[in-house]
């Protein structure tokens, strides 16, 4: 397995306060890595350290298999990024901004500009000064800039902020396309868990500058089984029936109102059938899936209560 990025015990101290402590990330080639954490957890700081904007106090960063040092610059040509907010030369148009970007990156095939504007669905607005753009449009342009020189590794800090639902879907599809078709490794941070859940292959959870967990989505999915939730005002009886007629013991009563059945072998309609037969009042019965959100919250709550 080749890694695009590895950090070893990355630590950053600013004014004697440890902002980032001992973070060791491992990002594999070709994957989409979701970086989760509450506001102020240190996501942006880590991203800035990877792009050499902030220098780590201790620990090291290994990118494309090379150690990142102060004078590493060629490595930056292989990375595309939006960090913090999408920032542009406000007075220039979208196109001019991308042209500048290509020139600075040393990329001379200017056809990619139109192509990437098309990819993020920003054509037609390309002759407008960026200062007149909405946040969503800037975000799209930022993504266009990050990907237009075909980098191997793309770092995106909160790329879906300010996008409308349709935009979010488009961008999500774009990420999957970039990852699957072009084999670009994407490192994406967000606090919108539902989005990360849909695109990421691996997630890293960070809180208070510490990496709490780095785990693949597959593992999370296998860990968190689906469950059937029965809502009834007579939970005791439902529990009795489940135990004696369906021989299910793996269930939990919540708030004396809901019963969660964690047995994956049983289908909801079987439970429904037996409950109706036994004349138990059932308000609803649902097949539920514990989401990344539950997982995320449980991780954060384990370490620290105030999040």
């Amino acid at each position: 397995m080749t890694y695009i990025l590895r950090t070893h015990n990355l630590t950053k101290t600013i004014k004697r306060k440890e902002i980032i402590s001992n973070v060791s990330l491992n990002i594999k080639k070709g994957e989409i890595y979701g970086f989760l954490g509450p506001n102020g957890a240190g996501k942006t700081t880590i991203m800035k350290m990877i792009t050499n904007l902030i220098k780590p106090t201790s620990g090291e960063i290994e990118i494309f298999g090379e150690k990142l040092i102060n004078s590493s610059i060629y490595v930056l040509g292989r990375i595309g990024s939006i960090i913090e907010n999408p920032i542009f030369y406000d007075k220039l148009t979208a196109k001019e901004n991308l042209e500048l970007h290509c020139e600075y990156m040393g990329y001379h095939d200017l056809e990619v500009i139109d192509e990437s504007l098309k990819l993020v669905n920003l054509r037609g607005a390309d002759d407008k000064a960026v200062k007149d753009f909405s946040l969503g449009m800037k975000q799209r342009l930022g993504i266009a800039r990050a990907i237009c020189t075909r980098p191997e590794f793309v770092i995106l800090d909160e790329p879906i902020n300010g996008l409308d639902p349709i935009g979010i879907k488009e961008i999500r599809d774009l990420f999957l396309k970039l990852s699957k078709e072009f084999g670009i490794t994407i490192f994406i941070s967000s606090h919108i868990l539902g989005e990360i859940e849909l695109v990421a292959d691996t997630i890293g959870v960070i809180n208070h500058g510490r990496l709490i967990k780095e785990v693949s989505m597959e593992e999370i999915r296998s860990q968190n089984m689906d469950y059937i939730e029965v809502k009834s005002n007579n939970c005791e009886r439902v529990g009795y029936i489940l135990e004696h007629f369906l021989s299910i013991t793996n269930f939990k009563v919540i708030d004396n109102k809901y019963i969660r059945v964690y047995d994956s072998k049983i289908a909801p309609n079987e439970i429904m059938k037996i409950l109706v037969m036994k004349d138990v009042p059932v308000e609803s019965i649902n097949l539920k899936r514990s989401s990344l959100e539950d997982y995320f919250l449980s991780l954060l709550n384990r370490g620290d209560i105030h999040v």
Partner: peptide, 14 residues
């Protein structure tokens, strides 16, 4: 001031 220096410093240029 406009933080565009961030972008500039992320280019593969000294």
């Amino acid at each position: 001031r406009n933080k565009t220096i961030n972008i500039l410093f992320m280019y593969p240029i000294n």
